[in-house]
């Protein structure tokens, strides 16, 4: 019995180590490549353990490529815009879905879920012609509008799940105390679901931050590129040194990784509750 238990712990530790190596290696390889000199990279001399004294080269793209900062700024604008518009609409919609019965609720719930099926590759054509006719190509807010269509339903599911957990009596008490529906939402509901709002915000933010297809199709003006488009343009471009490119990849990934790690628990509970009930 004890032998078997020890065996279990041994197997578990072994599997966990393997898991960490598998999950972590490509991430580690981004760092490794970013701080390895480019000549070494191109001659097959990249080592498993790099020269740690070159850690400063993680940020080399900030020095060597002026446009990278501009791309990051554009990505930030798009991501912030996506977050604000998504959360604003999602909060209202989630409240309706959580607290009311109304005609069309089922269709609406299905419609929100159905956005998870829509291929961006199919949407990109009609959206392109729509944006072209409205003069919204090469505009960052056009990207915000396109991204919101995908970020907002997910945010709605997360927020609805959180609102479902608020007791009815508290809202009724607020009504007796003189709150209208909008006041209840603002003064009672939103403060109580703040953690889930934060989780939804992180997800919406990085939907906008990471998005590539719309960004590369709708934005042709290089000064308005987002970081995803800019970095992708390095792929197959041999004029930009690879270590610089990986410095960009690193700087692009860091905010997302940090925020996701911090908000991990909230994001998961929101996503599971949202998708299972939704």
């Amino acid at each position: 019995m004890i032998a078997r238990r020890n065996l279990g712990v041994g197997v578990r530790t072994l599997l966990a180590t393997l898991l960490v190596i598998l999950a972590g290696f490509p991430l580690y390889w981004i760092l490794n490549t970013a701080i390895t000199p480019k000549d070494t990279l191109y001659t097959g001399g990249q080592r498993l353990i790099p020269d740690v004294s070159r850690a400063g080269h993680l940020f080399s793209i900030l020095v060597t490529d002026r446009s990278f900062l501009r791309w990051i700024t554009n990505s930030t604008v798009v991501a912030l815009g996506t977050t604000v518009t998504s959360l604003l609409m999602a909060t209202l919609a989630a409240y309706a879905l959580s607290r009311y019965r109304f005609f069309g609720k089922g269709i609406m719930g299905f419609g929100f879920f159905a956005t998870q099926m829509l291929p961006e590759a199919l949407l990109v054509v009609p959206l392109y012609s729509l944006f072209a006719s409205l003069g919204m190509l090469n505009q960052l807010y056009g990207l915000v509008l396109a991204n919101t269509a995908f970020a907002m339903p997910v945010a709605t599911f997360i927020l609805k799940a959180a609102m479902d957990a608020i007791p009815y009596e508290m809202e009724e008490s607020a009504r007796v105390d003189g709150c209208g529906a909008l006041s209840i939402l603002q003064i009672m509901v939103v403060p109580l679901i703040a953690p889930s709002m934060a989780a939804a915000a992180v997800i919406a933010f990085f939907d906008g931050w990471n998005e590539y297809l719309f960004a590369t199709t709708f934005i042709t003006d290089e000064r308005k590129w987002t970081a995803s488009t800019g970095l992708a343009s390095f792929i197959g471009d041999f004029l930009i040194p690879l270590d610089t490119v990986f410095s960009g990849a690193f700087l692009f990934a860091v905010p997302a990784v940090v925020f996701f790690l911090v908000m991990q628990r909230r994001i998961v509970s929101g996503l599971t509750a949202g998708s299972v009930k939704g």
Binding site: A23, I235, F246, A253, F260
Partner: peptide
């Protein structure tokens, strides 16, 4: 271990592609 194991989910796709292209590079 848990923190490392979740990270791939957070990394932007473009960055993921870059590193896998490099890992799978024919010569280097």
């Amino acid at each position: 271990a848990r923190a490392v194991a979740v990270m791939p989910w957070a990394v932007p796709t473009v960055a993921v592609v870059m590193v896998f292209r490099w890992i799978f590079n024919n010569d280097n």
